[in-house]
Design a protein around this nucleic acid. Structure first.
Lengths: 198, 198
DNA sequence: TATATTTTCAATAGACCTATAGAATTAGAA
DNA sequence: TTCTAATTCTATAGGTCTATTGAAAATATA
């Protein structure tokens, strides 16, 4: 039986989650075996069940691991007193950067969460949905302050920002050469002004 | 032995590809069994091997099925004589609409192609890369004609358009209520002018 | 050092999955 | 109808995978 009181078990379990994230990110959830995860962690397949009661639990933990930081950072940005454009840059920076962190957990969240049973998906859904709503709120404030075009559909806008960040996040994970800040700057320019000359 | 001369075998094989597309789109490649595909098609698991020599071949065929139309439509758009903005709208319309067609094959292409062995992936890579290059060419022309901002990184721009269309394509597949033309119009507005008021 | 607790291991059952082979069925031509 | 080729089926070998169990090793505690 694990000793959940000491921080040591928790620490090792965290390592296991990071290994699961890395393996799932590379091979996908169904494409990874518990043996792959154990190997990445340096233990034997059966020993993994000391930390997770099932492979599915590992996926849940990876998704939560990805979302906690991500959502918390959005809370901070949304609550801050900056003008709209600063908040937009902060959001894009935080989101795109996260793809290089957390062993690809955010990629796993986006690609694999759909395969979880409905009940387990719902907690995650609330997290993601909270994120989008906060971002939506930033756009609404932007409309009120006059920074954002009045005709903007804020729900669409929030989803578009998330979509673009995810798309570039994928590319950034795949190509480690890619310059993060160049991407962030160009995404911001696009979302602010579009491509058309005026 | 199949009769590849008559169109009938080819027709039935096409049905099998469409079934594979639908099943892969729903459960993912590794999450689907050949039994699932066969069931969707209304035959028995073993019979599927009359049409594919392996499950992997089915995935390749689904990806090719997704890409052929998609690429061909881009060829047509790129070769046409329309001004930049019309080409942009046409591209977005074609791309987003495709997510509702072909039984989700385009979604499968994006999500699962990475799991193919390198050799098989390369043919697909050339198709996708050709698409992006054509779109890049449209932006380059746009810069020359003055329609697009001079400072635009056309490679980034092309990838951004593809990324946004894929992100919205996902949402459109998931929510059948969503109004296709509303999405297309808003994506076009975003890519053209961004969100910032001027 | 001796004892208790935590962590890892080896071995395996039981389920499921891919691909094959040969038999049965169906459709089409003669 | 009868024969032939095309299509689908049943059955299964052979493999991989998840999850469990009880023993062994490692670590902490006294």
């Amino acid at each position: 039986m694990p000793n959940t009181a000491t921080g040591k078990y928790h620490q090792h379990r965290q390592d296991a989650i990071r290994s699961a994230a890395a393996v799932f990110a590379e091979k996908g959830y169904h494409g990874s075996s518990t043996g792959d995860i154990a190997e990445h962690l340096g233990i034997k397949q059966g020993s993994l069940y000391y930390y997770f009661k099932s492979k599915e639990e590992a996926l849940v933990e990876v998704c939560l691991y990805a979302m906690r930081d991500y959502v918390q950072q959005m809370d901070t940005i949304a609550a801050s007193e900056q003008p709209f454009e600063a908040k937009l840059i902060a959001t894009i920076t935080s989101h795109v950067s996260k793809y290089r962190e957390h062993n690809g957990a955010l990629k796993v969240y986006h690609a694999e969460r759909l395969y979880l049973p409905k009940a387990k998906r719902e907690k995650l859904y609330r997290l993601g949905s909270g994120y989008r709503q906060k971002l939506e709120g930033i756009f609404e404030q932007g409309v009120q302050s006059g920074a954002v075009r009045e005709t903007t559909d804020c729900r669409f806008a929030a989803q578009a920002v998330i979509g673009i960040c995810n798309a570039w996040g994928e590319l950034i994970v795949r190509d480690p050469e890619m310059d993060l800040f160049d991407v962030i700057q160009k995404c911001t320019a696009l979302l602010s002004n579009g491509f058309i000359n005026k």
